[in-house]
Design a protein around this nucleic acid. Structure first.
Lengths: 241, 241
DNA sequence: GTCTATAATATGATAGAC
DNA sequence: GTCTATCATATTATAGAC
């Protein structure tokens, strides 16, 4: 994906050297600012969150934010880059795992779908930073006024890794069929991540939206049915129902 | 839905009375401001669009915006209310039409899905105001910093009208099943409206995303397959693929 | 009704003390 | 490294001329 050097976690040094301890404290402050930003950007648009709010939430002065992260745009990019790679890595790792399990055979449809859908849904249930991040990420993806918008448009390659697997398992589908169905699948996922509470309301609490495993299996089931059994295009000409 | 008095079109008076003509001109200015706002809010977040930009785009002074629409929040609500009811009315009208055609029998699944999905998709293909509006609407729905956010959460009743029809056509589904599947269906629709150009990019132009009829039949097919043939929950315990 | 001018406030960014 | 104070700018909203 982008900037793969942002790969691991924060290097927390444990030696007794004073300057290093100061570095640690500095790093901790920086992470606290990133945490606060992530929290605020998770539920509000980029432009509507001010640096002053972020500073207040992180319990630092405004200048400290600029000191560690530079401009507001740079701050947003830092929030993004801190976790961005991990998600796609999870997807691809799940896909590879399913490949291995298939032992040369075609990967079962549910395995492909799970690799595509599980990481995002799982993250969205994380009460910590990953849950905030995934919301933040989807929000940015839909907000062209965020400085990240163009970055997302370059992040398509890892999705293309899924296409041959769908093709192998469902050889009767054209590549266009697969892309359309993947598109709708991702839509269902995004909506689930950002608007699951809406389902609570519409269904008057009938749906158990607090259970991650059920949510995943619901969406995988839905998309499995669609991928496997959707009628083909074109349907009756001049459709009228 | 909300504020059903905002139902019809602009009353364009045609008498020769001077004061009325002035009213017309005033109304035209107001609509031009609303058009410009709609255009800007369609692609950018609420907070990131300034009144000055709107005034410039509408070719009026800043004060004129305030004169006609009041505060920025009120302006946004006006943009919303100008077209909000129409969409749900279209959905419900399509559903009623399908009911009539069914002559007392259960409405065919495709008819229900089309009523749910067609209006939004059709609007999104409208090069005029409706196309901008539907993008604006979905953007607001995902942006809790917009003053409209809470309004959307009250707009659930018209969706509930669809539930009994699904139940009648697919009696083996529980109500929870139906709500989950409707949720994923709406997600696919939202994503299609806001991010169809992404599909272009991911598929390297393989999918014909410029054809409205094909798009509708693609999504209806997808959701028909899902509604009709999705495996039931719960699946294998401790699913492992 | 529409403009220009301006008030009141908020913002991103930085300078300088410690 | 972190703070307070401040700069330059942009914003919403309004007052007042025409």
């Amino acid at each position: 994906m982008l900037e793969p050097e942002l790969d691991g976690d924060i290097p927390l040094n444990t030696t007794e050297d004073d300057s290093v301890r100061r570095q640690d404290r500095s790093e901790v402050t920086k992470q606290r600012i990133l945490d606060a930003s992530e929290r605020l950007f998770a539920t509000r648009s980029f432009a509507s969150v001010s640096l002053r709010e972020i500073a207040k939430a992180a319990e630092v002065g405004v200048a400290t934010v600029n000191y560690h992260l530079g401009s507001k745009d740079d701050l947003l990019k830092a929030v993004f880059l801190r976790r961005a790679i991990e998600l796609n890595r999870e997807r691809v790792a799940l896909l590879s795992e399913a490949e291995t399990l298939a032992e040369g055979q075609a990967v079962p449809l549910r395995g492909i779908l799970r690799a595509l859908l599980l990481p995002g849904i799982r993250w969205s249930f994380d009460p910590g930073g990953r849950g905030l991040f995934i919301q933040f990420m989807i929000r940015c993806q839909l907000d062209p006024s965020s400085p990240l918008y163009e970055l997302f448009y370059r992040d398509v390659r890892h999705l293309q890794r899924f296409v041959p697997h769908f093709k192998q398992t469902l050889p009767e589908l054209t590549e266009a069929d697969i892309h359309w169905r993947m598109h709708f699948t991702l839509g269902a996922m995004h909506y689930t991540i950002t608007d699951l509470s809406r389902l609570d309301q519409v269904s008057s609490g009938l749906c158990n939206t607090s259970d991650m495993e059920e949510t995943v299996s619901r969406i995988v089931n839905f998309c499995e049915g669609a991928f496997r059994f959707a009628p083909f295009n074109p349907p009756l000409p001049q459709e009228r129902l």
